[in-house]
Write a protein that binds this DNA or RNA. Sequence first.
RNA 1: UGCCUGAUAGUAUAAUGGUAGUACGACUGUUUUUGGUGCAGUUUGUCUUGGUUCGAAUCCAGGUCGGGCAACCA
Length: 551
Amino acid sequence: MSEEKSLNFIEEIISQDLASGKYAQILTRFPPEPNGYLHIGHAKSICLNFGLSNHFGGGTNLRFDDTNPTTEETEYVESIKADLQWLGFNWVKECYASDYFDTLYGFAVQLIEKGLAYVDDSSPEEIALQKGTPTAAGTGNEYRNRSIAENLELFTNMKAGKYTDGAKVLRAKIDLANPNMLLRDPILYRIKKAHHHRTGDTWCIYPMYDFAHGQSDAIEQITHSICTLEFIPHRALYDWGIENLGIYPSKQYEFSRLNITYTILSKRKLLQLVQEAHVASWDDPRMPTISGMRRRGYTPESIRDFCDRIGIAKRENIIDFSLLEFCVREHLNKIAQRRMVVTDPIKLVITNYEQGEEILQSENNPEDADGGARAVPFSKELWIERGDFMEEPTKKYFRLGPGLMVRLKSAYIVKCESFEKDAAGVVQTVFVTYVPESKSGSDTSGIHVKGTLHWVSAQHAVPVVLNEYDRLFKVEDVDGAEGDFKDYLNDQSLTKTNAWAEPALVTDRLDARFQFIRKGYFYQDTTSTKGALVFNRTVTLKDAWAKEQKK
RNA sequence: UGCCUGAUAGUAUAAUGGUAGUACGACUGUUUUUGGUGCAGUUUGUCUUGGUUCGAAUCCAGGUCGGGCAACCA
């Protein structure tokens, strides 16, 4: 524990609990429902729960909250486990709420026997009506007065499959007039004759969240059960269950969920993007899912760093997307291999370069002294970026233009002598002369230039495809915007570009992190092959020139 | 017109009755063979009205504004 770093309110509670001897060690849990892929919002919760037990000593269970068979699938279970491992966290136990179905059923019987639960034959509509409104008390019905014996028999029959879906529910008998709507005789069990991904057709009644979550926490003896703010009203029910069942007193604490500008973090909406093909898949690199971010090139370190920086509190928040970008740049800058790639090429001819070609050395990473260097072929004809030449340079333009000098990265200083246009008036070729004594590493020319350009040797260049991603949505606060969130999708969120790359990329490791100099950080896509290289742009570099131009 | 929550720079997050600090952003300057990186600096804040106190972001009372709650979802 670092002394300077202040504790968030949950860490504060835990240190007190530990100091007072209330617990010898803590046990937290991460409880996803396996009905979708994990996203960066889950990462916040994961880093919190696992971070807490790492920090204070204890453990974290992975528990699948699989009480609704109609939405849950094994595919999701597997993806969740893979994402968790990739993020770098190890759980103490892999648990499933469905493992506790027998126990939970027993709990329900106990409540019936205590006169605290009853079977209700009403329809969903009737129950909703009888619940009243926030300002008007609910009304009971005749089923509420059923005898314990009758409830026991009916509940047994529910389990035995004697009724159709929706015909009956088991309800807690609490208080129809409670100002907290959740305490107005909440439903504990419903009938669903659906196939469960783990228990198959063993059950046809399934517990509701409120009769599974706290109970599962208690069974596992979770000390601190941490969830998001919308569950605050559920806490009363959570405690009611523990008290009336006399089980382990886990405690629920709530923090505010993550929101990020220009993105959505709702499983329901993300599922919609996939189903309606606004994105290619759950792991589309534009998705804020862990798998999407992984494919795009985010590192686990950068995601953990992000979660660390955003903090834990109880107020609603919306984090700037730029903070996420900062975190990934910060990490990638330290580890990424530098390579040169030209996307929108024009030909550069060095008129006085007579030797034809040579092999130059270029550092792999200026941030890493041990990073080594690679061989880069240089020749008389190169590709450079169209944007690095200007026919009539504006002031403060440090690149190439008639009479201007620049350095070619890891090579020589060149001076623009002339240029050539095609019939349409588009510049095709720039002619330069080079300064032989200006070679990188042994420059004796004494010439200082302001600009350095990246380039690739035309005859050695390798074709690659770049997936350049932009934000998925056009507005900052997507959830807060009027109307359908899909109306705000950015139709420019993916640009596929053909580019010329230096040959080293062909022999580089598939999983290497790259910085294409002056362009951004890139990571090989899952569809990439040796013969057809495809790179995803993780994030651009900070571009002070682009900012200058906007002024 | 009920109940539950919350309110500190643009965005987050600290200060636990005693100097309002940190990060990201923005802006300056500087370094640099990436207009990248690094370094230095500047900028902007306690929702409001009262009260308690020598002293309030913090405690109390009222108000304002935001979020949540009436799924056989979690």
